Amino acid sequence: MAVNSTAGRKPATPSDNAGTEAAARVADVLLLFTGGPRYLGVSTISRELDLSKAVVYRILQSLVSREVLATDPGVAGYRLGPAAVALGASALRRFDARVAATPVLRRLREETGETTTLSGLVGDERVYLDQFESPREIKMTVELGRRFPLHAGSSGKVILASLPEDRREAVLHRELPALTEHTITTAERLREALAEVARDGVAVSLGERQPGAGSVAAPLFGPDGDVHGSISICGPQYRFTPEAVGRYRDLVREAAAEIRQSWAWLQEPGGR
């Protein structure tokens, strides 16, 4: 017998829909601050989201009043405020993948002498969630919390290669901007590269996302079997010789498998 899941619910009213739309606008405004410059102004946000300046201004003032956004004297624009920082820190503390990855990535840094990173999949982009910096004087560091496209760099490509075909193709049908002269910008070439990444389980980048940077990454699968992010070893490109890359391939692949196992244990009853 079919069960009517809507039984007993009140039908949506115009005020309900308006409230949902308003909440979506606020969320869209906040998400802009994760992928752009530190400061954003009313005009930029209005243009990016196709909203009137009056609407954007009201949203910004509401967020400032709650310290989710803030302004600085002498600077035009808004930035993330202390409440947003607190929310982000709280989310990271509760993210099981980060808990599972921390000891593994620290050890991987000691084994390689290079910076190790954790990236998370956010929509059809990725963000760096954590890094463990190389102890060397010349090293690579990453910007935590900033969104990056999936088609450029090893951390993004290895996620893209692991996505279901429909999601992967949706990304490939969009514009693929060149971040450096080595970025793959055509869907056909990228498909070939991703097929090789999927077979190998590891992606390598030599200056694809950032000039002079080398990296080797492996996908991070969750206990549900879906890809949720990636881990990488990264550093100056000149140190990523064929011999080093060959060694890092095995290390990063083994580290990702260890993190996945620890992540699954954390989600079991009594695992924490």
Rank of each mutant, 00 (worst) to 15 (best):
F132S: 04
L63F: 05
H228A: 06
L80V: 04
A257Q: 07
R249W: 10
D226G: 09
V68F: 09
A101V: 03
R168N: 10
L118E: 03
V245P: 03
A83W: 05
T112C: 09
P135D: 11
A256G: 00
V202Q: 07
E254M: 11
A24D: 13
L118V: 04
P73D: 02
P219T: 01
L190S: 00
R58P: 00
L69D: 00
V3L: 14
A218S: 09
I233D: 01
H228I: 10
G225T: 04
E192M: 14
P14R: 15
A213F: 12
A198D: 13
A255I: 03
E137G: 08
K53Y: 06
T186F: 14
R98G: 11
A18G: 14
F132K: 03
G8A: 12
A101L: 05
R9K: 10
D250N: 13
R136F: 15
V158L: 09
D96Y: 11
R98C: 11
D200G: 10
V252K: 02
A12Q: 14
D224M: 05
E67H: 06
S134E: 10
R93Q: 08
T115H: 02
I184E: 07
A264L: 06
A198S: 13
Q61P: 01
S215D: 14
L31I: 09
A256S: 00
A18W: 14
S232L: 02
I184T: 08
F240S: 01
A7C: 14
G235W: 01
P211F: 15
P103V: 06
A70M: 05
A195G: 12
S134G: 07
E258A: 07
G81T: 05
R209W: 11
A264C: 09
E125G: 03
S162N: 04
M140I: 12
R239Q: 09
L179A: 00
D130G: 02
L220N: 01
S262A: 11
G120W: 11
G113T: 10
A22G: 07
Q210A: 14
N4Q: 09
Y78D: 03
K139H: 14
G41W: 05
G41N: 03
E21W: 15
E125S: 09
A161L: 06
H173K: 15
